[in-house]
Amino acid sequence: MSQRDFAASLRWWRQRKGHSQLELAGRADISQRHLSFLELGRAAPSRDMVIRLAAALDVPLRQQNALLVAAGFAPVWRQTDLAAPELAQVRHALDFILAQQEPFPAVVVDRHWNLLLANAGAVRLVEFLVGPLAPDTAVNLADALVAPGVLRPYLTNWTEVAGYFVRSVEADAASDGTNATAELLKRLLAYDGVEAALTAPPPTSGPVLPMLFRKGDVRLQLFTTIATLGTPQDVTLQELRIESFFPMDEATAQIFRGWSKAGAAKAAQS
Rank of each mutant, 00 (worst) to 15 (best):
R27P: 03
K17I: 03
P85H: 05
L24K: 07
V90A: 09
D58G: 04
R111P: 01
V69L: 11
F96V: 11
L117C: 02
R91F: 10
I51L: 15
W77L: 04
P135V: 00
G121H: 11
E102N: 13
H34N: 03
V123N: 07
V59I: 15
G121M: 07
A99F: 08
P75H: 05
P103R: 01
I30A: 01
S36Y: 11
A74F: 01
A54P: 09
V123T: 14
L94E: 05
Q100C: 11
I30C: 13
H92M: 13
V50Q: 01
G131T: 06
L87P: 06
E102A: 12
L61T: 06
N65D: 12
M49R: 11
R78C: 05
A43N: 06
N65P: 05
A8E: 15
L61K: 06
T80W: 06
A134H: 10
E127C: 08
Q64P: 01
R124W: 05
R4F: 11
Q100T: 10
S20N: 04
A54Y: 05
A55Y: 01
D95E: 15
P85N: 09
W12I: 08
S9K: 13
G131L: 05
E23P: 09
L116N: 08
L61S: 08
H19A: 02
W13V: 00
G72N: 01
A88G: 09
F104K: 06
P105R: 10
E127Q: 15
Q3I: 13
P105L: 04
A8S: 13
R11P: 01
A99I: 03
K17W: 02
H34F: 14
V90D: 05
L117Y: 03
R91P: 04
V76P: 02
R42P: 01
H34A: 09
L57W: 02
L87Y: 03
L53P: 02
L38F: 02
S9N: 12
E23V: 14
E86T: 14
V130F: 03
F73C: 10
R42I: 01
L117Q: 11
R91V: 12
R33M: 10
A71S: 06
L10E: 07
L38C: 08
G18F: 00
G18H: 00
